[in-house]
Design a protein around this nucleic acid. Structure first.
Lengths: 210, 210
DNA sequence: TGCGTGAGTTAGAACCTCTAACGCAAGCTT
DNA sequence: AAGCTTGCGTTAGAGGTTCTAACTCACGCA
């Protein structure tokens, strides 16, 4: 990597760091290319040398987010002794990641812009998390389920060594965990004074059962 | 209601209709007070006589959305013969409502602005849906669940004739259905070519079982 | 050591939100 | 019915945004 390329990569990363800070503080609408440039001591349009436009910056934030989430969950699963432990650890790492940076989680799993098409790299990063999760679940005993056939269509096209049943449980588990997390992050439970940890734990348990 | 008040209400409603159209087409960021005013044949700032600011307009869209959703679900439950049917009908009305106007659903249950506090009316409208759902579930037999105690704290403070168990099943059901819907609307399943209807139906079934 | 290119600059167009100041006319009140 | 209030519309403008165009300079590569 040449000197130029290294500087360029550093500048891009610095811009993304500022973007993440703005995201955490003011939400996605608060991310402004202009403001980021000024904070970096640059004039407004300078950053357009580094990102084609605002959407490109946001897209990269999303891809990076999926990668970070995947790595975090994979790391969390490494320590568990039994398969049950590993699944539990992954699930709780998922929640911990989301709670630590709610707006970043919602950038991945919240409202998308209509017509937005995820670039190839982002799709890969997103699926990496899911496949890792499915691999963990595969080690657990599972009941038959009529939906397995539906999921077989997908697992057979890709060359992933994941069984339809494991993939079904991964997707369903994902929807259940995301359902709790999403509503929690949006504050739908705060007024009820609910201990979401317990609710989440129950849903995690439901993953281990079928 | 005086002539003035009636005109005012009509203008407000017209603005909100335009806002919903813009929302459906371009997402929340595409809602522009300016553009709406121009489409109505008004000059930009005229609409600020009707809405304090852009956020006030969005807030009203949210409250209206909750009310509309609650009414839709209540109406759907009216026709069912058995309690199971009524719960199923409500759940499927929920999905139908979301699929018909995805961006509107995500306005209610998607990414919120950090620091956003729902006004009193919105909270009431949101809870109305949940309580109606709980009332339906209450007619179904239920197993004991350690979480019931957690939910009892909430049901006892309010004067709602809803049992903690029914409320627990309502909240958990809500998270499960929302989990599927949210990921479906964001397009996370499209690339897998998954028949989400089947997945959703399975989650609906899970509501009826415990 | 030179030179090309990449990275910065400013200017500016076209949007946005929202405030201020002003005028008109509609409708409520007497 | 006439007058007055007040609500509703206007334009001007400040300050923000994204992003393009045109220009300059100096950095790093050969």
């Amino acid at each position: 990597m040449s000197r130029r390329e290294r500087y360029r990569a550093e500048t891009r990363q610095e811009a993304k760091d500022h973007a993440l800070a703005q995201l955490a503080e003011h939400g996605p609408a608060g991310i402004s290319v202009n403001a980021i440039a000024h904070r970096m001591g640059l004039s407004g349009p300078a950053l357009y040398r580094y990102f084609a436009n605002r959407d490109a910056l946001l897209s990269e934030l999303i891809s990076d987010g999926y990668l970070d989430l995947a790595r975090t969950m994979e790391a969390a699963a490494g320590a568990g002794a039994t398969p049950e432990d590993r699944v539990r650890d992954m699930a709780h790492a998922f929640r911990a990641w989301a709670l630590a940076q709610p707006q970043r989680y919602l950038l991945l799993f919240g409202t998308p812009v209509p017509g937005y098409e995820a670039p190839e790299g982002t799709i890969g990063a997103a699926q990496r998390t899911l496949v890792a999760f499915a691999r963990m679940l595969q080690e657990l005993p599972a009941e038959e389920n009529p939906l397995d056939a539906e999921f077989a269509r997908w697992t057979s096209t890709r060359e992933l060594d994941v069984s339809p049943s494991a993939f079904r449980r991964a997707v369903l588990g994902w929807t259940r965990l995301h359902g709790v997390l999403s509503l929690e992050l949006e504050g739908h439970f705060t007024l009820m004074g609910l201990d979401v940890t317990q609710v989440y734990a129950q849903e995690v348990r439901s993953l281990l059962e079928h």
